[in-house]
Design a protein around this nucleic acid. Structure first.
Length: 1043
RNA sequence: GCAGGGAUGGCGAAAAUGGUAAACGCGCCUGAUUUAGGAUCAGGAGAUUGAGAGUUCGAAUCUCUCUCCCUGUACCA
């Protein structure tokens, strides 16, 4: 009987579904293990072979843990809110819920095909009201919380109100907005209800604020920083501009330090930790305040030059201060100018009348430039002098104040103290505008560039800092700044509060209505607030988000339900929030919801969270490093602070699976140019539109895109052109240009002689469907013509053997490159077990590697060999076979088995799944050679294989006589005694090079080994009479003879 | 620029702690079987471990210098 994988896989997939083999219980005596794969966004394209990689790894580990006696939670669900379904709705009018439903169906089919051990009873979908009820609930919890810096955690807003009532806000240390006026308890008591709410909003962990946002006009929405790639939207590549809007924000900055600290306690990949660390961007330094000198009394002398000390030492009225943040306050004596961001609010106030025109022009020009331009153009130095001066806090000298677009309004205070000798950007600026560059470093040459290495120098020309190292100078200057009131030591973060509003339809509605402009939360008992139906999914004509199209979108505070907008009276019926939540909202707590996903009374029960605690193993892509994986940590910490979860980090171990890249195939299309010189010194290339010709790879001598680099005489080409000229002149050369004019009155022969030597041609690689290419890179031409009917008439230039070979290159798998390989076709041809094994066999889990379907035959024939090994149990007819199968295992059999147990167990623990597949192959090869038919060997082997190839393992297990699933069979126990050897084949090397091997007993001592080796004839042969200088003997390992 | 990770036969890769380089698989070659192809079986070829230096009895592995590739991030003061 042959290995009929289709029948076997169908059978067991049905069995698992019917018997709920992988259902996890929230109540068990077994130790728990929570294995989680990042849930997918169900896109319309379905899964390609890259997607299951991480799922297979998680599945193997889950199944292994089940064999090891754990109660395993291994859930799956869908991150089903998102842009593509909405874009599709805009284009076709199909409701995103329907699109999503269809896509999920397709995903589920594909997932089921692969035999995963998911507990599908726990499936979640972020777009289900029953799920997003709890996303809304968390939002409300955040709204009702503030961050107390004293207790260093989030607390209920009522504790803040209590503080206000008792002593006002002067002593309150909170993560909050910066523009909050100080008030007393008495003031608080006298505030109106609305004033109180306005103030509280500035403290809440989610708050409404006017924020500069990344507005994407094409998508009609705001984007988060991590949704923008290279200045354009991640989805669609549309331009993004800065715009001020009232938006919900999440006060993630309150958690900046804890998000940083937490990284030390979790086993996550270093690169991922690094990118979170960079994203949070902690920098230690000082905030320094510079007084702006009175504009009415500008100091004498040129900008930045030394001026008359007496004149400015008189006390001046300083209406304006510039606050800067610097990581190098120790270089404060090197300040020779200051730079403000063009958007800085002081710019308009301090600019002198003489400079006004120039400054205004610059500010305007900068505002017009998109963020993208500004980023791309890092090299150009630009700026304008404001005419104003600031006073150095220590020397009291005047410092010219400039504006420049290299200073960003969004970081720090939007102003810098420029120290050109210590910062390259300041240096370039100073050089460009001829501003002095005082040197404050001992013995350092700054004539060419700034000196930024803070560790290796000593401060000079800096008054009381002279002679100090960076470290000491830092301490001293901060103390001095604090003493004189000019500044304070400060830690700054790059991390910004996260904008939480999206102008989208297909997302979670905010459980918010507005009374007198102030946001009010809907009570939990009335949640979920379900997404309303709309006519159109586009923003409204007045520019409101899509929910503005809903006619039924008002909150009745008496009936506690959504009612028609017509009923809004601002007394009992109020308008609802029109924005929806961003993509990361639903994914920020899904891992906890899996613990108790059908609970309608709580996000999860106390029993469930107490039992499961946290995720033991989390596997997913690294692209979520600064998105999902940061936000979810933030929410978890918040949930921890408020006592809902027992752990403030939710995933102990995280693995990023590598990307599986595609191997694109290219056909080469000939492209011909005529090179001519319409004027002296001008060379142009004019395309000649020959009928399309595809050339096999071997005939492409130089597939270049640089036309200048290639040129050859080609009579064939010339003749083709000549033939085509009479009837196709315009088509070949185009009209209305120099070329056609100079050719129009020529005969074909004349034209060809003009062209001679001036033709340049290249071969343009064109992506072709990889499914039309076989394993030796030969293109199926008929298939190609069918796929691209427009190329039916094209000419094809073949190899000498008549084949047509494509070029290949490894690229990211994508629809547009036609290099996508689907798991379905592979399952159909080789089976799920083969696909699972092959994906693991491809290479280390975390590494990115190219897909090559051809290699799958290796693991597939391994499975066939495995099947064959069990044939005595499969061919149940003969009585004879039973006696054989009960046979005692030989020592050889046992050695092979236990070697395999040891290696596979180590491999799984180390997530080295690729090597255990090889181990299985070796094991089966050996057992086959040993003609092993012993049940005592084959039974444990089936369990070893089961996490990797569960279908065949179940089938073999059943054929071995079991009636229960293999899923919970105990993992075989490794026993050292079967591996003990009595002798070792020692490699004998001479000067480090292995020359021959010698079998010696393992209990032989060092001296005995040395004697035995030296006495050996081959040793004498190698030495050729020389006496060895030294003999190194490592018992059990190696012998090395030096001489 | 900065940070992180890489480079091992034609390809994917394997080699805890320095100790027989290339296990395992693909591909290739030869033979058997087969009408042929496929499948199967038996056998085989394939090497300055990116370059250079150092430490060592011994280096893919440790140290330094360089080259190239990937990934992330970027005027962060």
């Amino acid at each position: 009987m042959n290995y009929d994988f289709r029948q076997i896989e169908d059978k067991w997939q049905q069995y698992w579904a019917k018997n709920k083999t992988f259902k996890a219980s929230n109540d068990s005596n077994k130790p728990k293990f929570y294995a989680l794969s990042m849930f997918p966004y169900p896109s319309g394209a379905g899964l390609h072979v890259g997607h299951p990689l991480g799922y297979i790894a998680t599945d193997i580990y889950s199944r292994y843990k089940r064999h090891k006696g754990f109660n395993v939670l291994h859930p799956m669900g869908y991150d089903s809110f998102g842009l593509p379904a909405e874009q599709y709705a805009i284009q076709t009018g199909q409701h995103p819920a329907i699109t999503t439903e269809n896509n999920i169906k397709r995903y589920r089919e594909q997932l089921d095909e692969l035999g995963f051990s998911f507990d599908w009873d726990r499936e979640v979908r972020t777009s289900n009201p029953g799920y997003y009820k709890w996303t809304q609930w968390i939002f409300i919890q955040l709204f009702n919380s503030w961050y107390n810096k004293v207790s260093d955690k989030a607390e209920d807003i009522s504790t803040l109100v209590a503080l206000f009532e008792k002593e006002g806000n002067a002593k309150v240390e909170a993560a909050c907005d910066e523009d909050i006026p100080v008030f007393s308890a008495e003031d608080w008591a006298n505030f109106s209800e609305k004033e109180k709410q306005e103030i509280l909003l500035k403290y809440r962990l989610t708050y409404l604020a006017d924020t500069e946002v990344n507005w994407c006009p094409a998508l009609g929405t705001v984007l988060a920083n991590d949704e923008i790639v290279n200045g354009v939207s991640e989805r669609g590549g549309h331009p993004v501009i800065r715009k001020k809007m009232t938006q919900w924000s999440m006060r993630i900055t309150a958690y900046a330090q804890r998000l940083l600290d937490g990284l030390n306690r979790i086993d996550w990949p270093q690169p991922l930790k690094d990118s979170q660390t960079n994203w949070i961007g902690r920098s230690v330094g000082a905030s320094v305040t510079f007084n702006v000198l009175d504009a009415e009394r500008p100091p004498a002398g040129r900008a930045g030059s030394r001026s008359d000390q007496d004149m400015i030492s008189t006390p001046l009225n300083h209406p304006y201060q510039i606050e800067v943040f610097t990581t190098r306050p120790d270089t404060i004596f090197g300040v020779s100018f200051m730079t403000l961001a063009p958007e800085h609010e002081l710019v308009a106030k301090i600019t002198t009348p003489e400079q006004k025109t120039e400054v205004d022009a610059y500010v305007e020009a900068t505002a017009k430039r998109s963020e993208r331009d500004r980023m791309a153009d890092v090299k150009t130095v630009s700026g304008v002098f404001t005419g104003a001066y600031a006073e150095h806090p220590f020397t009291k000298e005047p410092i010219p104040i400039w504006i420049g677009d290299y200073v960003l309004a969004s970081y720090g205070t939007g102003a810098v103290m420029a120290v050109p000798c210590g910062d390259q950007r300041d240096y370039d600026f100073a050089k460009y505008y001829n501003i002095p560059i005082p040197n404050i470093f001992e013995g350092v040459d700054i004539s060419e560039e700034a000196f930024a290495d803070k560790e290796t120098t000593v401060i000079a020309n800096s008054d009381f800092l002279n002679g100090l190292s960076y470290k000491d100078a830092m301490k001293k200057i901060i103390a001095e700044l604090e003493k004189t009131g000019h500044g304070i030591g400060k830690v700054n973060y790059r991390l910004r509060d996260a904008v939480f509003s999206r102008q989208r339809y297909w997302g979670e509605p905010f459980p918010v209505y507005y009374v007198d402009g102030m946001p009010q939360m809907i009570d939990l008992e009335h949640l979920p607030l379900e997404l309303p139906e709309v006519e159109k999914y586009l923003p409204t004509e007045t520019g409101e988000p899509p929910l503005g199209n809903a006619t039924h979108w008002a909150w009745d505070t008496e009936k506690n339900e959504v009612v028609s907008n017509d009923l809004i009276d601002h007394k009992t019926v109020f308008p609802l929030e029109l924005n929806t939540m961003p993509g990361w909202a639903g994914s920020s707590q899904y891992f906890n919801r899996y613990m108790d996903p059908r609970n309608d009374d709580a996000i999860f029960s106390k029993e469930a969270i107490d039992y499961w605690q946290d995720v033991d193993l989390y596997i997913g892509g690294s692209e979520h490093a600064t998105g999902h994986l940061l936000y979810s940590r933030f929410w978890q910490k918040f949930m921890f602070d408020r006592g809902y979860v027992p752990k403030d980090e939710y995933a102990q171990k995280l693995i990023n699976q590598g990307m599986i890249t595609g191997t694109s195939a290219f056909v080469y299309a000939e492209a011909v140019w005529y090179r001519y010189s319409p004027q002296k010194k001008v060379t142009k290339h004019h395309p000649i539109k020959l009928p399309l010709r595809f050339v096999s790879k071997g005939r492409v001598d130089k597939p270049l895109d640089l036309i200048e680099d290639i040129g050859r005489e080609d009579d064939v080409l010339n003749n083709r052109i000549k033939e085509l000229i009479p009837n196709n002149f315009n088509q070949l050369f185009g009209q209305d240009n120099w070329v056609s004019n100079s050719f129009s009155d020529k005969s074909p022969d004349e034209i060809v002689s003009l062209l001679k030597g001036n033709l340049r041609f290249t071969f343009i690689p064109i992506n072709t469907d990889v499914n039309l290419v076989d394993s030796s890179d030969e293109l199926n031409i008929e298939g190609f013509k069918k796929w691209r009917p427009e190329h039916h008439k094209a000419q094809y230039e073949y190899e000498e053997d008549g084949s047509f070979i494509v070029g290949r290159e490894v690229e990211k798998m994508s629809k547009s490159k036609y290099n996508v390989v689907n798991p379905d076709a592979i399952c159909e041809e080789y089976g799920a077990d083969s696909l699972r094994l092959y994906e693991m066999f491809l290479g280390p889990l975390e590494q990115s590697k190219p897909w090559n379907t051809a290699g799958i035959t290796g693991v597939h024939s391994f499975l066939k060999k495995l099947w064959k090994l069990y044939s005595p149990f499969i061919n149940s007819d003969a009585e004879r076979s039973r006696s054989v199968t009960e046979a005692e295992p030989t020592p050889e059999n046992l050695k092979t088995l236990h070697k395999t147990i040891k290696k596979v167990e180590e491999d799984i623990e180390n997530f080295s799944f690729n090597t255990s597949v090889s181990t299985f192959m070796i094991c089966v090869n050996e057992l086959t050679a040993q003609k092993c038919t012993s049940k005592a060997i084959l039974e444990p082997l089936a369990i070893l294989v089961s996490p990797y190839a569960p279908h065949i393992a179940e089938e073999l297990w059943e054929r071995l006589g079991h009636t229960e699933s293999i899923a919970e069979a105990p993992f075989p126990k490794f026993e050292e005694k079967y591996l003990v050897e009595s002798s070792k084949e020692y490699p004998i090397s001479f000067n480090g090079k292995m020359r021959f091997k010698l079998e010696l007993p393992l209990d032989m001592g060092k001296d005995e080994i040395e004697a035995a080796v030296l006495a050996h004839e081959k040793t004498q042969e190698q030495l050729q009479g020389r006496t060895p200088k030294k003999v190194i003997v490592v018992p059990g390992k190696i012998v090395n003879i030096v001489g």
